[in-house]
Design a protein around this nucleic acid. Sequence first.
DNA 1: TTTTAACTTGACACAGTGTAAGATTTTAAG
DNA 2: CTTAAAATCTTACACTGTGTCAAGTTAAAA
Lengths: 195, 195
Amino acid sequence: MSNKREKTRHLLLDTVLSLLLAPEGSPLRMIDVAKAAGVTRQTVYAHFSNRSEMLIAAILHFGDQLDIDDRLAPSRAAPDGRSRLTAYTRAMLEFFPAIYPLKQSLMRMGGSDEEAKSAWEDRIRAMKEGCAAAVRALKSDGVLLDHLSEARATDLYFTLLNMDGWAHCVLENGWPEADYLAEMQRVTHLALVKP
Amino acid sequence: MSNKREKTRHLLLDTVLSLLLAPEGSPLRMIDVAKAAGVTRQTVYAHFSNRSEMLIAAILHFGDQLDIDDRLAPSRAAPDGRSRLTAYTRAMLEFFPAIYPLKQSLMRMGGSDEEAKSAWEDRIRAMKEGCAAAVRALKSDGVLLDHLSEARATDLYFTLLNMDGWAHCVLENGWPEADYLAEMQRVTHLALVKP
DNA sequence: TTTTAACTTGACACAGTGTAAGATTTTAAG
DNA sequence: CTTAAAATCTTACACTGTGTCAAGTTAAAA
């Protein structure tokens, strides 16, 4: 059995993430990854055939570390639509601080990595699926606003929960996270739920 | 007088924009710009000392073509806070279709162009200044929600007006623009204004 | 018509990606 | 402990794109 290969791969992915999440948005050259992992550039290529593939693997690896299911449990366990909406909103905003730096790093990287971005978007789509579930719960409780279809309500909810808005308020303008959460709870309920 | 230089510069900027706004998000190499403009790569460097500078110039040039002042006139002319909010929201959403492709292109480009991005963000900041003005008008009418400071209300309004949300609903999910506008009007009023 | 600015031509140095092949170390199994 | 295979290292190369340079050519304003 070749345990070493797995270990090195793991080390490389951890290294990529640590560089990606580092405060100075480095260009992330292959040589940087190699050096930081204490390995040769060619070894990196032995594990990932090019940068895109490496980034995709790193994104997936990152997702694995996030124990999404656990954090979403309260939302799934909510007894009714309104509380499910509340719980899901809270869960999402709790993800943002961890996720946002990675998003920034990916955005700062060349458009050559189209596939890496689509791997990222897969993760985001999963987030939206949660929005849809919350909206469904509202609908089946009969508390979803009448003029909103489920699809529209999902889009709208997803739009309101945007990470850039969170970053703008919390990171750039110093809102306490609790305040931002409170506003989002207020606004999402107003936007979606019957009074 | 050397009129030719100005003309060439103008041609180059138009070319950059047309490539940037083209459906296929090309990598925008200097040689692409040169060829598309019918000019040598060296000529491009004679006008802009590097790619960042070229992109910045293109962004500013783009802004100039947008006759922002005219489009914002209705908002400035609004007789009261509520109608100013409505007018500004409409004006912003009318900008989005023109602006969004450029934003996408810039985002798809390497982090090497840090300065280009900050030129972009200057434009965005101007947008936010408009949000602040609308919020001030609400405040002075006494219809701004009591729990919101002007700063907080501005951040919140700006957050709700995010372009990615617009793109998500209108471009990706086929909302008619009028529907999106209507929802935004509804939500922003609920979020900011006393009932 | 001249002169000069603008543009062209053809070269170069540099950085980063991705490939290749042989030498060396490490690992796991006998 | 030995050995064969796997993983890594070393060195080298081809390729693309950026940015620079210097001399030659075209076109515009005087």
